[in-house]
Design a protein around this nucleic acid. Structure first.
Lengths: 223, 223
DNA sequence: CTTTTTATAGGTATTTATACCTGTTTTTCG
DNA sequence: CGAAAAACAGGTATAAATACCTATAAAAAG
């Protein structure tokens, strides 16, 4: 059976991208026909192509460009919208179950950690191409355990943080309570909590720990 | 000129490790003779080998293995001590100048970001093997700007945390509540809160935000 | 073989955070 | 100017975290 599967790669680290390309091309039935180091241009570039990939490997941790980031999450949503036939296989450094459950929820067809065996990548790709989805134990567990749990909506049309929100986020990272932040900024604790609620929503976090991680990942605090 | 250069790889992400191995092996004069997914066992394993690598590629962001955190920094120090003839080429996701300057200071012979071109990796390896060091523009600038500045000690200040505490700290960073952590680890929520109380005490934090910042500063979580 | 540390589990009480609402005023911007 | 966004403030709940205790079994260390 000679079935060619065409692959797309979206991964910011050039070295990793080349490495995985070399691995994938070692299987005859896989063919990498598209690659990109960032997410912004992907949709537009795919539109101009006569052959679009069957399976798109997307790195979750596409880097923030300043603090406005076009994340792998956003790309997953956009790919599902513009190319519904394309299968999206997430590649991520994280094993965070919330991440996994959310990604599957918004349209990913599989989730692999970067620590995976090359053979599993191959299996994931062929399985996705044949059956439309590849759920390994990790992903299954994540889905099961997070089923029904509140997951924040991932994609906000305007996910930019306002100046005040960033200020409050930074003070939160500095371990100030909402009340102390209110005193510091001469505003009501109610207002602070309002901003925090917006921060949770905009960043897709569940709690203060998530806010701090967001701040760190986006360079909003000194570490 | 037929000169064989032997390579060692220390990189936790299996996929990346295999990828870069494939890239390196595409050059005839490079030969990967050692690889490891963590840092702990490297020194011991090298001692038992009859051929040790000329150049060791070390990933900076080696993750803590549950208990003790053995970073790429620590490994660099130890390699320089036990195998002074071996050249260490750092592979890192970060471009932080303090990082770079520090690594060169403690014994690294080159520093590459993971975003590098495969050709540059090849050039870095051959240059290091011939001249003993490979300093590109990025590294040079880092050294110049940070020369004489006091750099943070490499030794992990988190040695006073137990493995269980580190585990709970990491899950806290992943936004799990104490109750969820208890379920995950099959222990009582009371126990989790006990560990968290100890974490607050040991790290000098006031709340979860402080714990996350501590974890980030001490490399106990992937960012 | 002791001693110490770690991991475990429990209680009670208080504080803080978060969810889910409704508003008004101020500022920004087309 | 007028619309939209941002900042502000409040209430009423519940959920979660934190403080401050005790206590025991297992594991590690000396």
């Amino acid at each position: 059976m000679e079935e060619h599967i065409t692959i797309g790669l979206v991964e910011d680290q050039l070295l990793f991208r080349n490495g995985i390309k070399a691995i994938l091309n070692s299987w005859d039935e896989l063919e990498v026909i598209f690659e990109s180091g960032e997410g912004y241009s992907v949709i537009d570039r795919l539109r101009t192509m006569d052959r679009i990939p069957d399976v798109m490997l997307v790195d979750l941790s596409l880097p923030p460009d300043g603090n406005r980031a076009y994340s792998g999450e956003q790309l997953t949503v956009d790919l599902a919208e513009h190319f519904p036939d394309m299968k999206v296989l997430i590649l991520s450094g994280y094993q965070d179950e919330h991440f996994i459950a959310r990604l599957i929820e918004i349209g990913a067809h599989g989730y692999l950690v970067k620590d995976s065996d090359p053979l599993e990548v191959y299996q994931a790709i062929t399985t996705i191409h044949q059956k439309g989805v590849y759920i390994n134990q990790l992903a299954l567990k994540a889905i099961q355990r997070n089923f029904g749990k509140r997951t924040k909506s991932v994609v906000q049309p305007n996910s930019d943080l306002t100046r005040r929100e960033i200020e409050i986020l930074q003070l939160t990272c500095e371990q100030y309570t909402a009340e102390e932040i209110g005193e510091k900024l001469y505003i009501s604790v109610k207002t602070v909590n309002g901003h925090r609620a917006n921060l949770l929503l905009k960043t897709g976090s569940r709690n203060a720990a998530g806010l701090v991680m967001y701040a760190v990942k986006n360079g909003l605090v000194e570490i």
